[in-house]
Design a protein around this nucleic acid. Structure first.
Lengths: 341, 341
DNA sequence: AACAAAAGTTAAAGCGGTTTCATTTATTGA
DNA sequence: TCAATAAATGAAACCGCTTTAACTTTTGTT
C-alpha cells in the first residue's frame, strides 16, 4: 500500500540509509545515487512517515501555541504570523484553546503538554495559571510567553509596550488641546489593560492634569455602551474618551450616536487594537495598532533560540505599538456638551 | 531523563505489555497489577510518547482542518466546535490555513496532506482546488467537506441550507409588508452567496414580485457601504435590503446613517451570520444564525463514520439556518424615502 | 603508481510503543 | 480434588525512520 523507505531503497538499488540521507538533504550523497533515489521516490509517491521520523529523531517538529479564544483579532493575527514563521522553518503549529472552554481543560490532558508532542510552546494568553509554566519547566519543554509577563520566573517573553500605548494616546489628545479626558479601561486582571491605564495616568500627571474620570470593564462593546450611557445620563462627559480597546470604543460611539452626540465634533474617541472595523465604519476610529506580526515573529525566534539551547533567562523583548489617528479624534469643542453657553 | 514504558514496567515489576494494557484501558489486567502500574506511572511522571504510539498503531489521532482564514466568525465558531468534538474523542486538531496566504501554499507541502500525519481531514473552505480532493482520495485519507459541496465527486459533506436562509429572510420581509426589496449578495464564486440570492429570488417569484434590485460584491463592510451610497445618490432605494452577510449589512447601515436615513423606520436591513456585533451595536441587526456548532459536530461524526470504514458515497447532511429578527426590520414606511408625498 | 585522505555507503542498533500468540495463573464445575 | 476453561501475562516481532561506527570507493598527492 503505502511505500516505506525500504521500498524506495530497494527500487533505487541503495540502502535505506542513503534514502534517508537524500530525504534529509545530507551532503554526502553522490549525485548519481541521489538521482536514483529521487526517481524511486517519485515513482512510488513516497512520503516519509512523520511519526517514525519524530520517534527516531526525538523531536516532533511541531510547536504548540496556547491561546484563550479564537475570536480576538489581535490574537488571531499573531497566530497567523506564528504559523507563517513556523512554516518557513519546516515546523507545524498546534493550536490549543485553553481556559475559555470548560474550566476543567486540565493542563495534563492538553495536547501541548503531552510529552514529545511538541518541541516547544508559545503561550499567548493574557491570563494563565502558574502551573502552565511550572509544568512546562518540569518537563523541560522550551517555551516563551507572548504579550504577557510573569515576574517570579526566569522565562523569556515578548511584550508590547502598553504603557507607551496608553501614554501616546493620551499625548495625542493632549496635543489636540483636550484637558478633560476620560478613560474606560479594560479589566483589572489583565496586565495589558492595567498598563494602558497606567500610560494614561502617567501622561496626565506629566502635564499636571487630573484624569476627568476612569472606569473599567471588560473588553467588550457593552462596556463602552453602558458606561457612556451612564455618563450621558449623569450629564458628565469628558471631551475625549480613551478606550481600553476598540470594542469599548465602538460601544461608546454607539451610545453617543443614540444621543446625537457627534464624534469627533462634540467628543473625541480613541480605541486600541485597530480592529478591522475601525477603518471601515464611519467615522473611522482613531486607535492604536499593535505589532501583531512582529510579536509572532519574535516569539518564534525567541523560542528557537531557546530550543537551540541558548541560555535565555528572563529575557523580555519589548515591542512598540503605533498610534493611528483617524477621524474620531480632533480638537475639543469650545464648550463641553453639557456646559451652558 | 524521561521515563519510557520500560522504566514503568521495571518499577512496577511487570512487563511492558502489561503497562501498555493499562495505558490503553484493556480489561484483561488484574486489579493488583493495574494498581502497581498506576503507582509507577505516577511516581515516574510517565507519559506515553505519542510519536511511538502513532507509529505502532498506524494512526496519529489528529484530524486536520482546512480553513481559508482565521478571521471569519462563522469559520472560527465551527473550528471551536470541531475542536471540542474531537477532544471528547481523544483526538487532536491540526489547523491549516490555506490559500489565503501565498497562493503557492502547495498542497503537497501541507501538514494535512503528509502521509500519516492526520487520520482524516475536514475541509472548511468555500473555495478549494480540485486537487485537495483528488490528493486526499489518492492517499486514501478520509475526509468530509463542510459548508460546501462539490458535485462530480463521491464525497460526504455537511452543508447549511443557504437557499432556505435566503428564502426565509425574504419571507420575513414580505410578511412585514415589503414589496420593494433589494439585495446585496456575496461574490459569485461562493456557493453560499449564490444560494442565498437564489433563495431570495425564489421567495420573490413565489409571490409574483420582481426583485427591486440585486447587486453583488465581497462579503465586506465596504461592499455594503459603497453600494448603498450609490443607491442613495441615485435616489433609488428599496424599502428593505437583504444583505449577503452581516459585514455588508453593517456597511449598508453605515451609509444610511451618514445620510440620516433611519433603520428600520425608513428602510429595513437584514444580514446573515449573526456576527457578534449584530446584537450589540444599535439598532440590533436582524440576521440569520447558522448552526455553526452543529456543522462542526456533524462534520466530525461523518468523518469518524468514514474512518470506521463505513461506506459513505456522496452523503450530504443539510442543516437549517435560523432567522433572528431584531431591530433593523419592521414594516415599510408609508412612502419610500425618495417618493413624493 | 602507490597511498593517505576524503567522500560515499551500509549493517546494525536503537527510538518507544503495540500486537499477536504462546504460556502461566486463576477460576469453575463435577 | 482435578481436569477444563477462562483470565492474565509476557516474549518477540514489528511500526518506519535516524544515527553511529565501520567499511568501501573515489579523489588527490607526490
Amino acid at each position: 500500500m503505502k511505500a516505506s523507505i525500504y521500498d524506495v531503497a530497494e527500487r533505487a538499488g541503495v540502502s535505506v540509509v542513503t534514502v534517508s540521507r537524500v530525504i534529509n538533504k545530507a551532503t554526502t550523497v553522490r549525485a548519481s545515487s541521489k538521482e536514483k533515489v529521487m526517481k524511486a521516490i517519485k515513482e512510488l509517491n513516497y512520503q516519509p512517515n512523520s511519526a517514525a521520523q519524530s520517534l527516531a529523531r526525538g523531536k516532533s517538529n511541531v510547536i504548540g501555541l496556547l491561546i484563550p479564544n479564537l475570536t480576538d483579532p489581535f490574537i488571531m493575527e499573531v497566530v497567523d504570523s506564528v504559523d507563517r514563521a513556523l512554516e518557513t522553518k519546516g515546523y507545524f503549529l498546534a493550536l490549543s484553546v485553553i481556559g475559555g472552554n470548560d474550566n476543567d481543560s486540565d493542563v495534563r490532558s492538553n495536547f501541548l503538554f503531552q510529552q514529545e508532542r511538541v518541541d516547544g510552546v508559545l503561550i499567548l494568553t493574557p491570563i494563565f495559571e502558574e502551573n502552565y509554566v511550572t509544568s512546562l519547566k518540569d518537563k523541560n519543554i522550551p517555551f516563551v510567553i507572548m504579550d504577557n509577563q510573569i515576574f517570579p520566573y526566569t522565562v523569556s517573553s515578548i511584550v508590547v509596550d502598553n504603557i507607551k500605548g496608553g501614554y501616546d494616546v493620551t499625548r495625542h489628545l493632549l496635543e489636540l488641546g483636550h484637558t478633560k479626558i476620560g478613560c474606560i479601561g479594560g479589566p483589572y486582571h489583565l496586565l495589558s489593560a492595567e498598563h494602558r491605564v497606567t500610560g494614561f495616568k502617567n501622561a496626565m500627571q506629566e502635564v499636571g492634569l487630573e484624569p476627568f474620570v476612569i472606569k473599567r470593564g471588560d473588553f467588550d462593546v457593552e462596556t463602552g455602551y453602558d458606561i457612556v450611557a451612564q455618563w450621558i445620563q449623569d450629564k458628565a462627559l469628558p471631551t475625549a474618551i480613551i478606550c481600553g480597546d476598540d470594542h469599548i470604543a465602538f460601544g461608546a460611539m454607539d451610545a453617543l450616536r443614540e444621543h446625537a452626540i457627534r464624534v469627533p465634533e462634540d467628543i473625541s474617541i480613541i480605541g486600541y487594537d485597530d480592529h478591522p472595523f475601525a477603518s471601515k465604519l464611519h467615522p473611522h476610529l482613531s486607535t492604536v495598532k499593535q505589532p501583531a506580526v512582529e510579536v509572532g515573529i519574535k516569539g518564534v525566534e525567541a523560542l528557537f533560540d531557546q530550543m537551540r539551547g541558548k541560555k535565555v533567562n528572563n529575557i523580555v523583548i519589548k515591542l512598540e505599538p503605533e498610534i493611528i489617528p483617524r477621524s474620531t479624534t480632533s480638537m475639543p469643542p469650545e464648550l463641553g456638551i453639557f456646559e451652558e453657553d
